[in-house]
Design a protein around this nucleic acid. Sequence first.
RNA 1: UGAGAUGGCCAGACAAUCGCGCUGUUGCAAUAAGUAGCAGUGAGGAAAGUCCGGGCUCCAACGGGCAAGGUGCCAGAUAACUUCUGGGAGGCGCGAGCCUACGGCUAGUGCAACAGAAAGGAUACCGCCGGAUCUAAUUCGGUAAGGGUGAAAGGGUGCGGUAAGAGCGCACCGCGCUUUUGGUAACAAAAGUGGCAUGGUAAACCCCACCUGGAGCAAGACCAAAUAGAAGAGCAGUGUGCUUGCACACAGAUACGGCCCGUAUCGUUCUUGGGUAGGUUGCUUGAGGCAGAUGGCGACAUCUGUCCCAGAUGAAUGAUUGUUCUCGACAGAACCCGGCUUAUCGGCCAUCUCACCAC
Length: 117
Amino acid sequence: MAKFSRAMRMNNPRDYSRVFRQAKRSSRGGLTVLTIENSVGHPRLGLAIAKKHIKLASRRNRLKRVIRTSFRQHQSVLANIDIVVLSRADVSQRDIKQIWATLEQHWQTVATQWQKS
RNA sequence: UGAGAUGGCCAGACAAUCGCGCUGUUGCAAUAAGUAGCAGUGAGGAAAGUCCGGGCUCCAACGGGCAAGGUGCCAGAUAACUUCUGGGAGGCGCGAGCCUACGGCUAGUGCAACAGAAAGGAUACCGCCGGAUCUAAUUCGGUAAGGGUGAAAGGGUGCGGUAAGAGCGCACCGCGCUUUUGGUAACAAAAGUGGCAUGGUAAACCCCACCUGGAGCAAGACCAAAUAGAAGAGCAGUGUGCUUGCACACAGAUACGGCCCGUAUCGUUCUUGGGUAGGUUGCUUGAGGCAGAUGGCGACAUCUGUCCCAGAUGAAUGAUUGUUCUCGACAGAACCCGGCUUAUCGGCCAUCUCACCAC
């Protein structure tokens, strides 16, 4: 089932620094996605939305919720990897529909890069 | 009907599907954690800025003074306030109403470009008046009504007065002082008196009165791996000695090395306290909401009844679809309250004012 529980979040600074050092990157549509294998047994998602890029707290929360929902609905195609989604400077110009479409493309890219074992 | 004033309220609605936090409960599991189902609940009027005030926590502290900062018409409300309510004074508006940093420059010091004679116990450019001189304009004296300069010119208006004038005198206004009356007070009114002294500026220094200990939930409290180090206790391989827990000797492990010799290093287990990562707590029942009664012009207070209404922590409210309307702004809790300020699509209600029309 398409759940999104606590375990599917990255909530440790060490995990983040590992991803930032070694991950594969791809950028599109105002978002950058970093991916690396993990040993937890399921995919995990981390978010890094800069206050510099989206100034208002309510809009930052909104973007994070959209990304989480999209991840939840597409997690069945993903292998056991850690994913970190970064914001870029031009993300504030996109609306929700554009972000949604961008995320779908990102998930497909990631799924072909890391074949599910 | 139109134009306004004040106060209050709302912040798209409904449904379906997939999801998230918390609480309760029932299964699985049962040490904890977890997991599945069901039920309940889940951001704001500003949650924002962090500008004030308080609660709470820790630290400091006998009392007093200075410094520094803040406040500044009066009375009240309040836990407290730079807030609020009522009143006074001044200003704006036809009005309903609104605005005010509103103590003191007759304590002291300072400041005011340019213009102007002169910018504050003054002064005379053009004037006005009188005198003197060879009658020419000059000079001496008086004056500040008129002109001129300036944001501002040493009370204002009028009459008398005078050579011309002048608070020089008088009346009214303004100002200061005294008294009386009303008011808790700020203040107002009246009477008397003074005789122009006292220009502006105190978000200029300053004076006066009152207030203020510091840091903040990353406060504070508790639990507590691993590693290093500290203290204590037990057990310390084999043999010998005896004072029976000590001494001596020999072994043991690891590294170097093909091996021996050799060299270097090393007891082990448990407990205790401190404490890092991490976790728990503080964490939401409160100066609480709603309704009613009573007191008060009001802010508000008291009483009764009733309700439980977010508690996250890499941080929970979202996405998709459909229907509908007025087509949805500003914007996301982070210990909690009371305010202030700023942002904001639109809509509703109550009371009041003005104008026009009708009666």
